[in-house]
Simulated scan of single mutants.
Amino acid sequence: MPSIYEKLSIRPVPYDPAFEIEEENEKETAEGIVAEMRRIIEITEKDYGRGVRTVHAKAHGILTGRLDVLPGLPKELAQGAFAEPKSYPAVLRFSTNPGDILDDAVSVPRGLAMKIVGVEGERLPGSEGDVTQDFVTANGPAFVAPTAAAFLQSLKLLSRTTDTPQALKKGLSAVLRGVGAAVEAAGGDATPLKALGGHPATHILGETFFSQAPLLFGPYMGKIRIAPVTERLKALKDQPVQVAGRPDALREEVAKIFSEGGGEWELSVQLLTDPETMPIEDASVVWPEDKSPYVPVARIVVGRQTSWGEKRTERLDEELAFAPWHGLAAHRPLGSVMRVRKPAYEMSSTERRRFNGCPMHEPASAAEIDAPKAEERAA
């Protein structure tokens, strides 16, 4: 039976620095994004008495497993962390995007951050000496803002609503869900409504996740997709979840699934083949799959386990930080939206570490991921 790669006819475009064009006032925009995120974390520190992430504060499950790089990849795909067929320990964190910890009746876009361990190679600035690679993804094929400047404007709106009473947010979310459903039924794009709280109240494990903005893939450029492949996860796509009266409904649903068995996802790459229709500096553009399909490069395998509520999962959520700029130089993030995220993520993890007095920890092996602290052993 011929391999999927034998029929692969795409011709990726090699990276050229000319594809990246710095925005006017990009440095000031980055400083503005850091300021808005600092405003969010200062509010939440007062509310919770502890530091939480400035985005994707609420986790709905922490899973440990492995990432298996597929054998037989052509040279265009055998790059960076996927250069050779091997297995890496992995940690997956499912979340929703606000910087405050909301009742799940406030229905917002979802994220999946993954950290793989034992990756060797030239590192990105700020992650020297580590052997981990992070992929930060969300459940939409493109970013909500095209540029860094537009990202700042949307973040200002988010930061101004951080301290809004949850009762008001839940009421608005219910209205936006209805409007969004009507817009999509009419063939429109409800992405902006979903970002404001109108995301359908569906199962998080049925989602497909994307890097949204591009990154290097060795000498090429591409986007990442993580999609469920086992039937028990695929069956959860668009499955409604009852969120009324269940503030942690998504945590409960994820916990139920993984208490019964494991699951698998496919990690695929879409390589840039046409700079005109697949721009680097407009993160809001969905790259056409008829020009370059997503092609699988790895399988993520997670076994039966407790996804939340143990000291282990709480420790991993507290100690680990996930960022697009943490990893190999071969997977350097590209474009203005990605560039301005670097100082923002660094500020968030630094402030969380400072406020909580808890050092961030980059594991060097599977044993370090699972090694319990003394209080866990005593429990």
Rank of each mutant, 00 (worst) to 15 (best):
H361G: 02
E184W: 11
P343E: 05
V179R: 09
I280G: 12
P296N: 06
E375N: 05
F210Y: 15
A59F: 13
T273M: 08
L124M: 13
R11Y: 05
Y294L: 07
S127K: 14
P74M: 03
T64E: 07
F135E: 01
T96I: 10
F151H: 13
T313E: 13
K115T: 12
E252H: 14
K234G: 10
E120N: 07
E264M: 07
E264S: 14
G309Q: 01
R246C: 02
H199N: 14
R341L: 15
E23L: 03
I40K: 15
A235K: 05
F143G: 09
R377V: 00
A148R: 12
V183G: 12
T29Q: 06
E260P: 07
H361A: 08
F322L: 09
H326I: 01
V285D: 11
S9F: 00
R66K: 15
A59W: 15
I204Y: 15
P275D: 07
V301D: 14
M1A: 08
V179H: 01
P14D: 04
E6I: 03
L250M: 00
S211D: 06
S127P: 06
D104P: 06
G180W: 10
P146A: 13
M278C: 06
M347P: 09
V183R: 10
L267T: 04
E266T: 13
F209Q: 01
P288T: 04
I204R: 11
A167C: 10
G197T: 08
L267E: 06
R123C: 00
R299N: 11
S159W: 14
T277D: 11
Q270E: 04
L8A: 07
D68M: 01
S349V: 01
L236D: 06
V108F: 06
N139E: 15
A374R: 04
K223Y: 09
A378T: 14
R11V: 13
S307Y: 10
V269L: 06
A371T: 12
D238P: 04
V297I: 04
C358L: 01
Q242D: 05
T350E: 10
E231I: 00
Q242M: 05
P333Y: 04
T64H: 08
R312F: 01
E84F: 00
P200A: 07
K194C: 07
P74K: 14
D16L: 01
E36K: 12
I40Q: 14
R160G: 01
A105C: 06
Y294I: 02
D16G: 09
E76P: 02
D134F: 03
V285Q: 12
T350V: 01
Y48T: 02
L112Q: 11
L70P: 01
E319Q: 11
G118S: 11
